[in-house]
Simulated scan of single mutants.
Amino acid sequence: MGTSLTTEFWERFSVLLVLALAMTAILTAVFTALFDTLTARLRGHRSHGTAPRVPHPRVRDDRRTPVHH
């Protein structure tokens, strides 16, 4: 017993597909913006609480390490 898909099915399917794609794009944009804002705030709070890093001065050592055989 085979059934064929009607034009009404394809119309509803295409409308629902377009709505699903639109909602996915909108929600992705919203959550990306919220995540970026949250990340920026967390980095901003963290940088105020710690002292800036001071690079460790490198000591130049021209001496060679002895090799024992």
Rank of each mutant, 00 (worst) to 15 (best):
M1Q: 05
T28D: 06
L38D: 04
T32R: 12
R60K: 14
E11V: 05
L19C: 07
T65L: 15
D61Q: 02
A51F: 15
L34K: 08
P66F: 09
A29L: 12
M1C: 02
M23R: 06
R46M: 02
H69S: 06
T3G: 12
V59P: 00
R64F: 08
L34W: 08
M1V: 03
V18Q: 10
V18H: 08
L16Y: 10
P55S: 05
T65R: 15
I26Y: 04
T37F: 08
I26D: 01
R53Q: 07
V30K: 02
F13P: 00
G49S: 11
G2S: 00
A22M: 10
F31W: 09
T3D: 14
T3N: 14
H68C: 00
A40T: 15
L5R: 08
R46W: 05
T3I: 14
L5T: 01
T65N: 15
R41N: 11
T3Y: 15
H69L: 10
R12I: 10
L19T: 06
H56T: 07
T65H: 15
V59H: 03
R60H: 14
L42R: 15
P57R: 14
R63N: 03
P66S: 11
E8Q: 15
L34F: 10
S4Y: 09
V59D: 00
F13V: 01
R46K: 06
G49V: 06
L19F: 06
S14W: 12
P52D: 15
H45M: 06
M23E: 03
V67G: 03
E11G: 01
I26L: 08
H68S: 03
V30C: 02
T7I: 03
L34R: 10
W10E: 01
T37I: 05
F31P: 00
A40P: 05
T6P: 01
G44C: 03
T65A: 13
A33T: 08
G44I: 02
S47Y: 14
A25Q: 13
M23W: 05
A20D: 04
G49C: 05
H68I: 09
I26T: 07
A20Y: 05
P57G: 08
F13H: 05
L27T: 12
G49Y: 08
L38V: 05
I26P: 01
V30N: 01
F9C: 04
L27I: 12
P57H: 11
R58A: 06
R60T: 09
R43F: 11
L42Y: 14
P52L: 13
A29Q: 07
S4M: 09
R53L: 13
R63E: 02
L16Q: 13
L16C: 09
A25M: 14
A25D: 11
V59G: 00
L16N: 13
F13R: 04
A25Y: 15
V59A: 02
D61P: 00
L34I: 13
L17H: 06
L34E: 03
F13C: 01
S4E: 09
L27P: 02
P57K: 13
L5H: 02
T50I: 13
A22Q: 04
R58P: 01
L16T: 06
H69G: 05
